[in-house]
């Protein structure tokens, strides 16, 4: 755990301190608002032999697999560029024998994290999948992909999956304070479970806000400060994906990525230009604006639709009323102290 107050760092520092070769790395976001800037930084720092967990593999998984960071992948969904005629980095790596993939359903994947988050060693999942090839075809997890147990109460066979506790979670949220309290709203997906199941947590956010903002809206805090190791402020940190209340999906940049992702050479050229060619996310955004102008980004900025404020107020915040009398006993502080003395409660 980083020192309190010392958590606000650059993406470069956050990744170099917390993501190591051979780690089990989890992308905390699910389909929406992926932590693009942190993903690109992992690629820039050429981490190797990672086991990657991703609830729903989109451009983020493709970029990580395509850049050779990943040996093993645990997921429920793979992106494919260009439909039937196209391809994907995952498909190419499977065929080259450089990637092992373990397939789960959305629920099973999330359940593994729920078990990990709550400290259980395994968790029951929905038994229907026992008849499918998800159950029968296994990769690197072998016997431990699923196990069937007998319910001690009903006697029925139950399908179970083992808990997952990844080494490090990278996740992008709307806002956080400098202590690491991370607030996220919208499609909750498996964001909280992915983060809280992990041993270390790196949060990137659109903006760092005052602690008071967090205290007046604790229902939006998905990850509490005491679990967070690093906080990075990165505007447009999820581009080309979207962040609710900040910006929409960037169809233009996503289109460029998808057009490139269908072939290994195309993806390499894209990574060279947009990841290796930019020292950080600010440089990526600057390069974007320099090359294509700011029209695309301006066109996807969110218009406000504020949540109705939830009133966390109370009638009073002191035991003493406006006249200085204790609210139950009706005495002023002087009268109270006099009483304590008269009753023999005070000692010199």
């Amino acid at each position: 755990m980083a020192e309190r107050n010392g958590k606000v760092v650059s993406a470069k520092e956050a990744i170099s301190r917390n993501v190591h070769d051979g780690d089990h790395l989890i992308i905390g976001n699910y389909t929406v608002g992926s932590c693009a800037a942190l993903v690109y930084e992992v690629i820039r720092q050429s981490r190797k032999k990672l086991t990657l967990y991703s609830q729903s593999g989109i451009f983020d998984v493709e970029a990580l697999v395509g850049s050779g960071c990943i040996d093993r992948l645990v997921t429920t969904y793979c992106l494919r560029a260009g439909g039937r005629k196209g391809g994907s980095a995952v498909e190419r790596a499977l065929n080259a024998g450089t990637l092992e993939l373990e397939d789960y359903t959305n629920f099973q994947y999330n359940a593994r994290l729920m078990a990990g988050m709550h400290g259980f060693s395994y968790i029951q999942v929905l038994e229907g999948a026992m008849v499918t090839d998800l159950f029968h075809k296994r990769s690197f997890m072998g016997e431990d992909k699923y196990r069937v147990i007998k319910c001690p109460y009903t006697g029925k066979n139950q399908l179970t999956v083992p808990a997952a506790n990844p080494d490090v979670c990278i996740v992008h949220v709307q806002r956080a304070d400098k202590f690491g309290n991370a607030q996220y709203w919208g499609a909750l997906g498996s964001v909280a479970a992915a983060a809280l199941a992990s041993k270390r947590i790196i949060v990137s956010c659109e903006e760092i806000v005052e602690h008071d903002v967090i205290q007046s809206s604790p229902h939006l805090t998905l990850i509490p400060a005491y679990r967070v190791d690093a906080v990075v402020e990165i505007p447009w940190g999820a581009n080309p994906t979207e962040v609710l209340g900040y910006y929409n999906m960037d169809q233009f940049m996503y289109g460029l990525f998808m057009a490139a992702d269908g072939t290994a050479d195309g993806l390499k050229a894209w990574l060279d230009e947009w990841v290796y060619g930019c020292p950080n996310h600010e440089a990526y955004i600057n390069h974007y604006i320099q090359k294509f102008g700011s029209k695309c980004l301006d066109g996807i900025r969110a218009k406000a639709f504020y949540s109705a404020p939830a009133n966390y107020g109370s009638a009073f915040t002191s035991r003493w009323d406006t006249e200085g009398r204790e609210r139950n006993m009706g005495l002023t502080l002087d009268e109270f102290e006099l009483t304590l003395k008269q009753r023999g409660k005070l000692y010199e």
């Binding site: 429920t76 039937r84 995952v90 065929n95």
Partner: peptide
Amino acid sequence: DYYKPTMRLPGSGGAADFISY
């Protein structure tokens, strides 16, 4: 072949559990 696919499709996502229940 699942391990060396001619074409890797998305996967289950929510499908296997939804059609079950």
